[in-house]
Amino acid sequence: MAFVDRLGEILSEGGQGGIILTSIDALADWSRGKSLWAMPMGTACCAMELIAASFAKFDFDRHGSFPRPDPRHTDVMVVAGTITRKMAPAVKRLYEQMPEPKWVIAMGNCAVSGGIFFYDSYSVIRGVDEFLPVDVYIAGCPPRPESLQDAVLRLRELISTESIAPGVKHERTLSLPRSGDVSFGVRPGSAEEGDAE
């Protein structure tokens, strides 16, 4: 890791290494994106869908992503389920144990915002982004395994913009939905009505 970081620094400082840097980045991002091993941080209901995602019917292994229980061997933490105040230190510690580069997927409404437990609950943390840097959010209570697959593909796109050089971001087109997108649920003509609501 240290070597790679230094290489990135040298290439970006010299200003000469544009082509070399982009090629190395393309290779690095390809390998990182295609081999996203998951740390299944399944606490509640979503854990069932997380299990289902890696089993026979949905088979995450197809995307080169399979769950490892040991944080040291993983790249992406899938926080699936409600995180309570008692659990949060443990989740944070597991996240810290993962080696860089690492990503977080917040799976399910509880991990996104507290979901159904937003109101009246004295112990639920409203979203894991209170203490973890979340890269991809998946809505749903619980989301279907296909949503998780979609999240992995989205995360792959996000990784493809990253560089081994510090502070460099590649411009790649993300297929993330934007407002005005048909797939976003708002028809182009009716954007204002949507906003007014």
Partner: peptide, 11 residues
């Protein structure tokens, strides 16, 4: 891909 990723991981 797995091997390359592992080499690029933090030690």
């Amino acid at each position: 891909a797995d091997t390359l990723k592992m080499i690029l991981k933090e030690d």
